[in-house]
Design a binder for these strands. Structure first.
Length: 155
DNA sequence: GCCAACGTTGGC
DNA sequence: GCCAACGTTGGC
């Protein structure tokens, strides 16, 4: 049984189209301990994630990715020229880890945050919670399935 | 651009 | 270990 997740990304930084082009990408740059712990401790190969575009108008879910690697050191933490450089992280004892994600699908339409908030079936979904800034969020299979079916539904 | 919410830092 | 200050996120 896979776990389900929601992955946030600003499309200016890395969009679903970028992932579709690259087909896979190490999910680097996570510098929040809770999000890191999800990747390090709970994510496993075969897990499935909704891909969410944040800081855009409107924000919303735009597709599906999957987890295709075990956790490994986030190399950007070792690069002094990277905006994600962290001198406290070393290859011997990496502070920050990431998993590789793969492209699964770009939805025919975005399911907007507003639509998610209006939908009573999605009650309790973390991304709709006020002040929720976690960039990697656990998701129920029911919520995953519902959003996926909305995305394939004409409106 | 504003600002609420939250996480992190650092002085004590 | 407390907590004020600060920085960041991200919707609006």
């Amino acid at each position: 049984m896979p776990n389900y997740w929601l992955l946030k990304s600003e499309p200016d930084a890395y969009s679903i189209d970028d992932l579709a082009r690259d087909t896979r990408e190490p999910w680097t740059g996570v510098r929040n301990y809770q999000a890191r712990n999800f990747m390090r401790d709970t994510m496993k190969v075969g897990d499935i994630a909704l891909y969410y575009h944040s800081s855009t108008t409107p924000p919303g879910v735009v597709g599906i990715a999957n987890v295709i690697s075990n956790p490994h050191a986030d190399q950007t933490a070792f690069d002094p020229k990277s905006e994600y450089f962290d001198p406290k992280s070393s290859p011997d004892n990496p502070t920050w880890v990431c998993v590789d994600i793969g492209f699964v699908e770009k939805f025919p339409r975005m399911v907007t945050l507003d639509e998610i908030k209006q939908d009573s079936t999605l009650e309790g979904i973390l991304v709709a919670k006020r002040g929720m800034r976690l960039s990697i969020q656990p998701l129920s299979e029911a919520h995953f399935s519902h959003i996926t079916s909305l995305a394939h539904q004409h409106i």
